[in-house]
């Protein structure tokens, strides 16, 4: 199925939903630090980042709505947990602050390569939204990269915690680049160069930063499954929490 201008609609829907779901889940995980972060500045930072990511999620859901006619609220709050197509990476519990920082950094770098690719896409809606999000993301990356640089080799404890977090997060992060259904069509229509290409660009960005921070990249294989709706159970708990208020009064006007 494709539109008159050669854009593969179904594959594009798959892509938009994956982007929206990633932002929604990580936004929710970040919001779990509100009131609990180790420093007031970090509490503010992760609350802001959560709000940004939820906004980005809404922007992707809105583009998806233009193709599918499905409402963002319904997509966010009425699906079964097993219907989301986020990568597993964004569904894991927030862990300690080191894990949160490492996850956020690896995600922020992926946002950079994704959004830079999409901002050159021939499909105007995705191009415009990407260009806008990219400007906001500069602040996320500055923050998370700064923490990687400061905590990677600050003290024995900070190094140990950051390395342990990277050991967990890195293979999970590779799961962000799991191939999407219909990805070949997205590549041939020029929407983006595909997830394998994004992963290589991402590696080119994260490797030197992690190395400078004295952190070693583990060799474990990618944690795939999320794009095929094969999730870990943490997502079920997350979705229960995410939808709990909505389900008290579905469709309520605030």
């Amino acid at each position: 199925m494709s539109t008159s201008d050669g854009i593969p609609t179904q594959a594009l829907e798959t892509l938009l939903l994956a982007l929206a779901d990633d932002e929604l889940m990580l936004g929710h995980r970040n919001a779990e630090w509100t009131g609990y972060a180790p420093l007031i500045e970090e509490d503010i930072a992760f609350s802001n980042i959560a709000q940004d990511e939820l906004g980005h999620s809404l922007a992707w859901f809105t583009l998806y709505q233009q193709l599918s006619n499905k409402k963002p609220d319904s997509l966010a709050f009425e699906r079964e947990w097993s219907d989301y197509t986020c990568c597993r990476f964004v569904t894991y519990p927030k862990g300690d602050f080191a894990y949160t920082v490492v996850r956020q950094y690896l995600f922020d770098e992926a946002e950079q390569v994704r959004l830079r690719a999409f901002s050159l896409s021939p499909y105007e809606p995705i191009r415009d939204v990407s260009a806008k999000i990219l400007r906001e993301e500069a602040y996320h990356l500055m923050h998370s990269q700064g923490l990687i640089e400061r905590l990677g080799d600050a003290t024995e404890e900070s190094h140990r915690r950051m390395q342990a977090a990277l050991n967990d997060a890195f293979p999970q992060a590779l799961g962000m680049f799991e191939a999407l259904e219909g990805e070949d069509e997205l590549i041939s229509s020029g929407i983006f160069g595909g997830n394998a290409k994004l992963r290589d660009e991402w590696l080119g960005r994260v490797q030197p930063v992690l190395e400078n921070a004295t952190l070693l990249i583990p060799g474990a294989p990618a944690d795939f499954g999320g794009r095929k709706r094969n999730h870990v159970e943490y997502l079920q708990q997350l979705v229960d929490d995410l939808q709990s208020v909505y389900k008290i009064a579905p469709g309520a006007k605030w």
Binding site: E41, I44, A45, S47, N48, D52, Y139, M142, H143
Partner: peptide, 13 residues
């Protein structure tokens, strides 16, 4: 710069 993020999305401290 004290904090890259502030009380609203558009401000820093």
């Amino acid at each position: 710069l004290d904090s890259e993020f502030g009380a609203t999305l558009c401000k820093q401290i």
